[in-house]
Design a protein around this nucleic acid. Structure first.
Lengths: 273, 273
DNA sequence: TGGATGCGTTCCGTTCTTCGTAACGGACAG
DNA sequence: CTGTCCGTTACGAAGAACGGAACGCATCCA
């Protein structure tokens, strides 16, 4: 069963695939979340044996977990005994999305931005140390970015993440940079901390950050931070596009649009009033 | 703590808030889902004590559960120690929504329907015995329905649910009616099984079902089933509106639109090919 | 200012829940 | 028919989860 390449850490040196939890955790819950995570990643019906292979849990354990989840419609089981995500999670996601109102507030403004530049527009939300895709409007062009609502993205290599970083309080930004190893996703990824800090300082000044094929070959990005009424970054807006339609000048002019859009959203949150 | 009016069953006569699981379940997982369910219902930050009161679990237990969930970004904790849903669930919901593709397929067709009737349009998905809100487009009028993506709805009293019921195989429909108690949500709710079966038979014939203030005072609804290539109902489309803008004739003419929309979606799924 | 009350959090011994091995039964292919 | 795969079930052992009680910290009120 092909290794779950993208999954988080896993596989500590001792061979146990258990994720090391922050403090004290409920083991079966950690395991359950690993199972759900795997099912959400592979977007298709999966059997217990396959999940067992991916998570290093016994089939009996997984069967017990899935049976419980099924009773609550968190997962569904088809007639062949294969499992998939179920509709109960919709309510949870709606509850999260509705809470901040960021999604509703930003949606019409994102659409204006999309009309202007006709490229894939992303909305991110920042939650203590991580950026998540919250919403997107796809490019009308067939060549699209692949992105999944809810996926977690790096702060240091994405334009939106950099925009967020650049507006973080110094202490918080430094804490992040101290604990984070700058890994290269492509040959272009900036992995030098000093260079990155330069980029962030410049980005903060001009109001948006760029990224040139640093996450995916052939894709460029510009992003700007959304600030709440205290000036704290709660999210970001970004535009992604294939490099061949995204010259340096275009990147800058779109960057201004992105910055203005993010600013409008920030105003809606009370920033600058 | 205003009673969670709309919440599903809960609260068995014995006072224990534990939901009786189907077969054998993992207790702590059931409890976890009760906690998550409560948090998703009350869309705001909640403290451990409040959750404890609502679920009859000890504070220590809830604290342990929430700590574990927090490690995985399923819930977030603010600086005052209050909890709320977190972004990890977005990925799960996206995985579910993407699986069938019903949402993407139906969206443009729902918009056409919405342009025609300018009322709140709902998309439902049917998963073994339950109907869930999958998507909606709100009425432009200020008076809107209250509905939450992911919420579970009755099959017997809603127009969409009836449309689904009417196209279910006889055995499955009868099994549902046998096990379901027809509760009145308003004074108008049809609670007589024979009468309901009449409504279903008629609905199946004309291709859509109605509902007159049977779920909420002053709200009417028409719905039609979405069928897959085997003719099995996988969901439904419905239009809701305040009664004062929804005469019997309007209901019928909109019903035809709804039926046609649902049919177009069904075609997209391979029905009738 | 001091006490009282509420909160989220931690501790710890007991117990009952969860665990994995192994066996089962059915589906399918050779 | 037989081998191998699947999902499922059984059961005794082990240790994970449990909750009462204590803690530290806020806030509120006298």
């Amino acid at each position: 069963m092909t290794k779950t390449d993208e999954s988080i850490e896993h596989e500590n040196s001792n061979g146990s695939a258990e994720t090391e939890a922050g403090a004290f955790s409920i083991r079966v819950l950690d395991r359950t979340l690993a199972v759900i995570g795997f099912m959400a990643e592979t977007r298709r019906q999966v059997g217990i044996t396959e999940i067992s292979g991916a998570t290093s849990l016994s089939k009996a354990t997984i069967h017990r977990i899935l049976s419980t989840l099924r009773d609550h419609s968190v997962v569904l089981k088809d007639e062949n005994g294969r499992y998939q995500m179920g509709p109960a999670v919709l309510l949870w996601a709606d509850a999260y999305r509705r809470r901040s109102g960021l999604s509703e507030l930003a949606r019409p403004l994102l659409r204006v931005l999309w009309e202007r530049c006709r490229e894939t527009v992303h909305l991110f939300v920042y939650e203590n140390g991580d950026a998540f895709y919250l919403d997107k409007i796809d490019s009308p062009h067939p060549v699209g970015m692949r992105s999944r609502i809810g996926a977690r993205r790096d702060l240091y290599s994405t334009s939106a993440g950099r925009a967020i970083l650049s507006f973080l309080p110094d202490s918080e930004r430094n804490a992040y940079l101290d604990r984070t190893e700058l890994l290269a996703h492509t040959a272009m990824t900036v992995t030098d901390r000093a260079k990155l800090e330069e980029i962030l300082a410049f980005g903060r000044e001009q109001g948006f950050c760029e990224e040139k094929e640093e996450n995916e070959e052939g894709i460029r990005c510009v992003g700007a931070a959304i600030l709440d009424l205290r000036g704290y970054p709660v999210g970001a807006v970004s535009v992604s596009s294939p490099s061949y339609r995204f010259s340096d000048e275009q990147s800058r002019s779109i960057g201004v649009f992105v910055r203005d859009t993010a600013l409008a959203v920030s105003r809606g949150l009370g920033y600058g009033k």
